[in-house]
């Protein structure tokens, strides 16, 4: 009575016996299936992340349309130098991450660990610069809700003497810009922090030789995540820092 599997005719019985590597989990038939499943899962997860950030991008689109002068003035308060450095740092970290994946594929444990550590360092550098920028925003009273003053916007911005100061009603709307600025970069930074935490675990496991035995999908998938976080920044940088910088 018990456990008759579904009718299988003998000629269909899978006869190919794979050597089961230790990282093949019991419910997968083949390594290939496991690898495909995990990368498919990762792509789906990135899709949910796109929807997550998508909500804020939608808000950005609407408000930028309504309050363009406020967005320009807000953008001109950000440091383009720090933003550019951070962009470079993140692209660099994406490169080291890609190299880490390559090292895992070529089963080079030492290189893998080095590149992962480099990625962590670059991630921390990014966060360091970001927190410095946040600190500056705090000191300049640009944090809506907690510490905000329209002072900088109803007066001429010394860095942009050609900009006309905003009338009070538009100056108030810079709060929307900074709300979006903090929400978007804050969520991005949160993703960086989560990424760095996972990287630390990966480094520890890589010491034990986990990802240099042919099982590269964890590193690969984490690479996808890291590149995604990088790409989000590639969008954030022009949208937040570079509004009307072409004159």
């Amino acid at each position: 009575m018990d456990s008759q599997a579904i009718a299988t005719s003998p000629e269909h019985t899978p006869s190919v016996e794979h050597a089961h590597p230790p990282y093949l989990r019991h419910h997968f038939e083949t390594v290939e299936q496991q690898r495909e499943a995990s990368s498919f899962g990762m792509w789906l997860f990135l899709l949910t992340e796109i929807m997550f950030f998508g909500g804020m991008f939608a808000a950005y689109l609407i408000y930028r349309n309504w309050y363009y002068p406020a967005f320009v003035a807000g953008s001109h308060q950000l440091s383009i130098v720090l933003g550019t450095i951070n962009t470079a740092v993140l692209i660099g970290s994406s490169f080291t991450m890609a190299m880490a994946v390559y090292s895992a594929e070529t089963r080079n444990r030492k290189a893998l660990i080095t590149y992962l550590l480099l990625t962590i360092t670059l991630g921390l550098v990014f966060l360091g610069i970001k927190s410095d920028e946040y600190h500056e925003k705090w000191e300049k009273h640009h944090v809506p809700g907690l510490n905000f003053s329209v002072h900088d916007f109803v007066n001429v911005n010394p860095a942009y003497p050609d900009d006309k100061p905003l009338p009070l009603d538009m100056a108030e709307k810079t709060q929307v810009y900074f709300s979006l600025y903090f929400a978007m970069t804050g969520m991005h930074a949160l993703h960086m922090i989560i990424g760095i935490s996972i990287l630390i675990i990966l480094v520890i496991k890589a010491y034990g030789g986990s990802y240099t035995d042919g099982h590269v999908s964890t590193i690969e998938n984490f690479g996808l995540y890291w590149h995604f976080v990088d790409i989000v920044w590639i969008f954030l940088f022009p949208l937040l820092y570079l509004i009307s910088r072409h004159q």
């Binding site: 809506p144 108030e172 929307v176």
Partner: peptide, 16 residues
């Protein structure tokens, strides 16, 4: 965030 910090994305008094 709007409740704790006071950002203004949905707040009509701040332009949201």
């Amino acid at each position: 965030l709007e409740r704790t910090i006071g950002i203004g994305i949905f707040d009509p008094t701040k332009g949201g």
